[in-house]
């Protein structure tokens, strides 16, 4: 593996939550790599472990009830899971930043936007108050907030949802991180605002030249933004591919089903959209066999007993499935 280009490598990450109802197997051995400047989309339905994976990388999981059971997160030759808490504070917000789903609740209501912006700068750089203030104005202008200088003293409730998400983005990019993790940043917004935010993030990514992990459950968003896609199901990665490969020739039955459930402009409209039968598995049970087996139309006996590993089948296209969906035969 090329050490210069692989700047983030996650290996066999396992995260669990110990709740009164039992242990939740949230992330079950996730491995992937990310190159400098690359955009990776992580797709999957709610509760499939997308967010928990990313929060485990930044060690934002509260312990207890959470526990990172095993794994390695190598970021620029450092294992993040082995760093001390204070070393980790220098990574968070400075080198790896994160934006969250709901801009309505992710800003502190009693602090001015300027205060929350400059706070990041003053924590990670040695700017004084005036310098950080100037930088904050630049940041707000950069993310397209009009009259930025005056808005520093405003409180979050004086901003609309889309504007708040812009503020969150400005905050995340304050220290020009080399990796941005975006956890469904458009889910809570109106569709028109969604498009604006996606365009903004794409532009900013170009400006900064950072890598990005974009978590979403919207396959439509993925096509326009990502280089590579990871599909997650029940805490496992079930498929990983270049974005075009994934849309053209999905290899996992779950991905196939997801794509069939998605309305597409290049398809005939007389066919009904297909929904996936059944419900996602209960994460309270220790996983055994393929997690998708109970809902899979290609299910074989082997699927129920043995969990398929994620293997590379074609060039940079990985899938975790016993069955070749094109032929219906076992691999």
């Amino acid at each position: 593996m090329d050490a210069i280009h692989t700047f983030l490598e996650v290996k066999d990450l396992k995260t669990r939550f110990h709740t009164p109802e039992g242990t939740v197997y949230a992330v079950n051995g996730v491995s992937f790599t990310l190159k400098e400047g690359e955009t990776l989309a992580v797709v999957g339905e709610s509760g499939c472990g997308k967010s928990v994976t990313m929060m485990s990388i930044l060690r934002l999981i509260s312990i207890p009830p959470g526990e990172i059971v095993s794994g390695e997160v190598t970021y620029r030759d450092r294992n993040l899971l082995k760093l001390s808490e204070s070393e980790m504070e220098h990574v968070r917000g400075k080198e790896v930043a994160m934006i969250f789903q709901d801009p309505m609740t992710s800003l502190n209501p009693v602090l001015t936007v300027g205060r929350q912006l400059t706070e990041t700068l003053r924590t990670h750089t040695n700017m004084d108050e005036e310098q950080s203030r100037q930088r904050a104005v630049t940041l707000l202008e950069w993310v397209g907030i009009p009259d930025a200088g005056k808005r520093l003293t405003d409180y979050p409730h004086q901003f609309s949802g889309g504007m708040r998400q812009r503020v969150m983005i400005a905050m995340a990019l304050a220290c020009t991180p080399s990796l941005l993790i975006a956890d469904e940043p458009t889910t809570a917004l109106d569709v028109t605002i969604q498009a604006q935010i996606i365009e903004l993030v794409k532009k900013l990514k170009q400006d900064v030249g950072m890598a990005m992990i974009w978590i979403t459950h919207d396959l439509g968003v993925v096509a326009g933004i990502a280089d590579r896609v990871i599909v997650m199901y029940a805490g496992f990665i079930v498929e990983e591919a270049e974005v075009d490969d994934l849309y053209d020739s999905p290899l996992h039955p779950y991905t196939t089903a997801l794509l069939q459930a998605l309305p597409r402009a290049d398809r005939r409209r007389d066919k009904n959209l297909k929904s996936i039968q059944g419900v996602p598995p209960n994460l309270l049970a220790e996983p055994r066999g393929c997690p998708f087996a109970p809902r899979c139309e290609f299910v074989k006996e082997r699927c129920v007993n043995e969990n398929p590993l994620l293997i590379e089948t074609e060039n940079r296209h990985k899938v975790a499935c016993w069955v070749n969906v094109k032929t219906g035969a076992l691999r």
């Binding site: 504070e89 917000g93 930043a97 969250f100 992710s106 800003l107 706070e119 990041t120 969150m168």
Partner: peptide, 9 residues
């Protein structure tokens, strides 16, 4: 959580 992600102690 967002404040923690910003790297605050």
């Amino acid at each position: 959580l967002a404040a923690k992600a910003k790297g605050l102690s």
